[in-house]
Nucleic acid binder design. Structure first.
Length: 648
DNA sequence: GTTTCGGTTCTTTTT
DNA sequence: GAACCGAAAC
């Protein structure tokens, strides 16, 4: 099954072929929506492998794990197992992979914990509480964290960010900087990195240790980057560095689809790529195979006025079909009813549920629809909201695992102790200090100090956990994560869940799934190093395959990026919802919302429905009226058709 | 002094 | 829902 069976000329169009067979050097592929970007990258990988490039010398950076997996699978279909050794994944994953090996260069232990958003907020809260006055006169912890994060991701000094964005808290710069220093220090003490640290340290590793950089530069002869328009300045610098020796850097992206500037992404990375890499070859993919021309007209039209972009226009190849629909419904509940009614009618036309999706700007906009879908018996798949690995019960169990791997993880300790009766934050902190700020090893002479420090009632509940840890011992704790998790559930967590959560059965079921998931990993450490970086889509993968049930997808527009469906509904197409009122506060907000609208529009292949309720009720019950989104009203009227809905 | 409980308020987007 | 606050309970 070697020997080239791939007929590149027949399977790719001229533009794609040029990119796939691009010569060595820097290449920029501007790939508009639905023009076969994934296909191009996949064939590029196959082509390189067929040019006798070892797969383990190719680095493929993607925006999600799903994208990496998908491309590798497809490339594997093309050239077989030869792609096996390829390194592919998100920037956070790659940074993590390198940092696990070289953490000591930067003063971390290699078993550092990764703090997810929730953990980070808790830690900032703890720093606030340490302030005289408890930081009550400062912004809330999550707001502070977003400021810290923005500074990190844009590589700008925090003081600059504060000067611009502190708003009504202007004047408390000093206090905020103090909290930030405390936060950084506590992460260090706990041997923990947050998401931003992974990127920042990933770059620092290269900057401060040229010999490390050089070894990876030599290793990766070819570097491919997907969704380049959503890289931030750190990621761009990291990519430039790692590809610096061979110079074979191909980046693929679409500046029209840059929708992550709020987290530091800078689409100027893609605009200035040719200047940063003299001699760059530019390829443009503009032929769209995905959508009917009526949908592309809306997409082209809405984005045309945006400033600062590579000019390009989607060229339709499909036959004309129907214009996108615009439904002006009364309110949220009529919107839900209308969508459900349309779904059922489309099903009668022959569309399957998994060929349809409902997209929206923000999670809460879909709640009403969820209720109605449930009542109508239409199964749906929700990829938004709280992620699997961030749910309280999953994090509770993960806390024990974290402590076993990283005994300095105070956050995990606090969480674990908090599960015991009459132990809250204060008691947990006292015990932590009492036992020398380190979780003891699971041995008979070390471990009991925890139980001895606990109040009587808590100690009684803790005892079975202690027994479990002792029976597993140092060795099994380290190598048998699934046993650790299973037993912890049996001897402790099941009972705790039963008295804490209403829906405790489904939560325990989640946890059993976590245990099964843990089985895939060779040791506890590698499980943990993945856990915080996994998304809902990853967790879902197994379930989806097993159940194999047709379900309609509900998703934010952000999470829909890169996906496509035959039928797409967009909810709450009203001014204030989409574009969201908050995004319009800053100057570049509207342009980014328009790009987001462009992304939503270009997800649809056959049919597209825009829903615009006229009113909703505020919290106080007062009605609020909504005009149609400016993205709709600024379109020429004849691009859409008006739908009609009268309640049953 | 702490934890726990009950009532109230508010939702942008995510690795 | 989940995060926050104040008040009751340990």
């Amino acid at each position: 099954m070697t020997g080239s069976a791939i007929r590149y000329e027949a399977e790719l169009n001229e533009q794609q072929l040029a990119a796939v067979t691009a010569p060595d050097g820097a290449a920029l592929v501007i790939a508009a929506a639905g023009t076969g970007k994934t296909r191009t990258l996949t064939y590029r990988v196959a082509w390189l492998v067929e040019q006798h490039v070892d797969a383990d010398r190719i680095l493929l950076l993607t925006f999600t794990n799903r994208a990496a997996r998908e491309m590798l699978q497809r490339a594997q279909q093309l050239v077989g197992s030869r792609v096996g050794g390829l390194w592919g994944g998100t920037f956070h994953h790659m940074a993590n992979r390198l940092l696990r090996r070289h953490a000591d260069c930067l003063g971390y232990g290699h078993d550092y914990s990764i703090l997810d958003q929730d953990d980070s907020v808790s830690l900032v809260k703890a720093c606030l509480r340490d302030l005289p006055g408890g930081g009550k006169d400062l912004p809330k912890a999550d707001v502070l964290l977003s400021l810290f994060s923005y500074a990190a991701n844009t590589s700008r000094p925090l003081t600059t960010i504060l000067a611009q964005r502190l708003g009504k808290f202007a004047g408390s710069e000093e206090a905020v900087l103090h909290v930030h220093r405390a936060y950084e220090k506590r992460k260090r003490v706990q041997n923990a990195m947050d998401f931003d640290d992974l990127l920042v340290n990933g770059l620092a590793l290269f900057r401060e240790h040229p010999q490390v950089l050089e070894s990876y530069q030599r290793r990766f002869r070819y570097v491919l980057v997907d969704e380049y328009q959503d890289t931030n300045i750190i990621q761009a610098a990291w990519v430039d560095a790692v590809s610096g020796l061979h110079g074979n850097l191909m980046v693929v992206g679409d500046d029209f689809q840059s929708i992550y500037s709020w987290r530091g992404a800078d689409f100027r990375n893609i605009l200035s790529f040719p200047e940063r890499h003299p001699g760059t070859t530019i390829f443009k993919l503009e032929i769209n195979y995905r959508s009917v021309p009526e949908i592309l007209q809306v997409a082209n039209r809405c984005i045309a006025g945006n400033p600062e972009q590579f000019q390009k226009e989607l060229q339709a190849r499909r036959e004309p079909y129907r214009k996108p629909w615009f439904f002006r419904v009364r309110d949220g509940s009529e919107q839900s009813a209308c969508v459900v009614e349309r779904i059922q009618s489309l099903q009668r036309e022959g569309y399957r549920l998994d060929e349809m999706a409902v997209l929206y700007r923000a999670h809460f906009q879909a709640m009403e629809l969820q209720l109605l879908l449930t009542r109508a018996g239409i199964p749906f798949l929700l990829t938004s909201g709280v992620r699997f690995f961030e749910q309280a019960h999953v994090k509770d169990v993960a806390a024990l695992v974290r402590l076993v791997v990283n005994p300095s993880d105070e956050l995990a300790f606090g969480r674990l102790m908090g599960l015991l009766p009459r132990v809250g934050p204060k008691t947990a902190a006292k015990i932590w200090n009492g036992i020398g700020q380190r979780f003891p090893a699971p041995t008979p002479d070390a471990l009991p100090v925890v139980r001895k420090a606990l109040p009587a009632e808590a100690a009684k509940k803790w005892e079975p956990v202690e027994d479990t840890l002792l029976s597993l011992g140092v060795e099994d704790c380290r190598t048998q994560p699934q046993k650790l998790i299973e037993r912890f559930i049996t001897v402790f967590y099941e009972e705790y869940a039963a008295k804490t959560f209403e829906n405790y059965e489904s939560r325990v079921e989640d946890l059993n799934e976590l245990a099964r998931f843990a089985e895939r990993f060779e040791d506890t450490r590698s499980l943990l190093s993945e856990l915080a970086l996994l998304t809902n889509l990853d967790a879902e993968r197994g379930r989806e395959e097993v159940e194999n049930e047709e379900r309609i997808r509900l998703s934010t527009v952000h999470q829909a990026k890169g996906l496509e469906w035959k039928v797409v509904f967009v909810l709450w197409m009203t001014d204030g919802m989409f574009p969201s009122a908050r995004s319009l506060l800053d100057e570049t907000g509207e342009a980014e919302e328009r790009r987001l609208f462009y992304v939503a529009t270009t997800r649809a292949k056959d049919e597209l429905f825009f829903m615009a309720p006229q009113m909703n009720r505020g919290r106080d019950g007062a009605p609020q009226y909504h005009s149609p989104s400016r993205f709709i009203s600024e379109l020429p009227r004849d691009l859409l058709q008006r739908g009609d809905y009268s309640a049953w």
